[in-house]
Simulated assay, not measured.
Amino acid sequence: MTHDTFTTRHLTAGCSVCHGTDAHWTGPNAQALAAQHHDRTKHHTWCEVHLSIRYGTDVRDDRQADIEDAIASVTKGVAA
């Protein structure tokens, strides 16, 4: 069985010695940069990964009227 999925991944990383608790590297290479920094300096580094997975797609609600159409139907015949 296959699912429509949408996955996002957000990475932040830093060096406890150089940056404390502040993130210094972000994006898809953050984990690799933290590992490389550790290998070069032997500093304690960290990486946080936030993963979000969504299954399926939003179902369109055909009852939802376009806001301009809704306003026009309410104000029709009313003098401006």
Results as ranks from 00 to 15, higher is better:
residue 71 I to D: 03
residue 80 A to E: 14
residue 45 T to C: 04
residue 10 H to Q: 13
residue 38 H to N: 01
residue 37 H to Q: 07
residue 13 A to Y: 00
residue 43 H to S: 03
residue 74 V to K: 09
residue 5 T to Y: 06
residue 23 A to Q: 09
residue 70 A to R: 15
residue 35 A to N: 15
residue 11 L to A: 01
residue 72 A to I: 09
residue 31 Q to R: 03
residue 18 C to A: 15
residue 13 A to V: 01
residue 54 R to T: 09
residue 51 L to V: 06
residue 37 H to G: 02
residue 23 A to K: 10
residue 44 H to A: 12
residue 49 V to H: 03
residue 7 T to W: 01
residue 40 R to C: 14
residue 55 Y to T: 05
residue 75 T to D: 06
residue 16 S to I: 04
residue 29 N to L: 08
residue 45 T to Y: 00
residue 40 R to P: 03
residue 23 A to S: 15
residue 53 I to Y: 15
residue 30 A to I: 01
residue 38 H to V: 00
residue 56 G to E: 02
residue 47 C to N: 02
residue 56 G to Q: 02
residue 9 R to D: 12
residue 25 W to Y: 09
residue 55 Y to W: 11
residue 73 S to L: 06
residue 79 A to V: 14
residue 25 W to V: 02
residue 22 D to Y: 13
residue 14 G to L: 01
residue 66 D to Y: 03
residue 10 H to P: 10
residue 69 D to M: 08
residue 55 Y to L: 11
residue 28 P to K: 07
residue 23 A to N: 08
residue 56 G to N: 01
residue 10 H to D: 11
residue 28 P to D: 07
residue 18 C to R: 10
residue 25 W to I: 05
residue 61 D to C: 08
residue 4 D to V: 10
residue 32 A to I: 12
residue 64 Q to N: 15
residue 10 H to C: 13
residue 44 H to E: 13
residue 17 V to A: 10
residue 75 T to Q: 14
residue 65 A to W: 12
residue 22 D to P: 01
residue 79 A to S: 13
residue 51 L to F: 04
residue 31 Q to F: 02
residue 6 F to K: 04
residue 53 I to C: 14
residue 53 I to E: 15
residue 46 W to S: 12
residue 63 R to S: 11
residue 22 D to G: 11
residue 54 R to C: 10
residue 26 T to C: 04
residue 51 L to D: 15
residue 77 G to I: 07
residue 3 H to A: 04
residue 5 T to H: 06
residue 71 I to Q: 05
residue 64 Q to T: 14
residue 33 L to R: 08
residue 72 A to Q: 13
residue 39 D to E: 12
residue 4 D to M: 07
residue 11 L to W: 00
residue 30 A to M: 02
residue 35 A to H: 12
residue 32 A to G: 11
residue 36 Q to R: 13
residue 76 K to D: 10
residue 33 L to S: 08
residue 55 Y to V: 06
residue 10 H to G: 09
residue 60 R to V: 14
residue 2 T to S: 10
residue 22 D to M: 09
residue 34 A to K: 00
residue 37 H to Y: 06
residue 46 W to R: 07
residue 73 S to H: 08
residue 54 R to N: 15
residue 14 G to I: 01
residue 47 C to T: 07
residue 1 M to D: 05
residue 4 D to N: 11
residue 43 H to T: 04
residue 15 C to E: 02
residue 50 H to P: 02
residue 39 D to L: 08
residue 27 G to P: 01
residue 42 K to S: 11
residue 64 Q to K: 13
residue 32 A to H: 06
residue 42 K to I: 06
residue 69 D to T: 07
residue 49 V to Q: 07
residue 14 G to E: 00
residue 43 H to G: 02
residue 80 A to N: 10
residue 3 H to C: 01
residue 78 V to S: 07
residue 75 T to R: 11
residue 18 C to F: 05
residue 33 L to W: 05
residue 72 A to C: 12
residue 54 R to W: 07
residue 65 A to S: 14
residue 52 S to I: 08
residue 51 L to Y: 07
residue 78 V to R: 11
residue 57 T to N: 07
residue 63 R to M: 05
residue 56 G to P: 00
residue 59 V to F: 01
residue 6 F to D: 15
residue 14 G to N: 02
residue 9 R to N: 09
residue 20 G to N: 03
residue 28 P to V: 06
residue 76 K to I: 08
residue 65 A to H: 12
residue 77 G to N: 13
residue 17 V to P: 01
residue 59 V to L: 04
residue 36 Q to G: 11
residue 71 I to T: 07
residue 7 T to M: 04
residue 19 H to T: 06
residue 5 T to G: 03
residue 22 D to V: 13
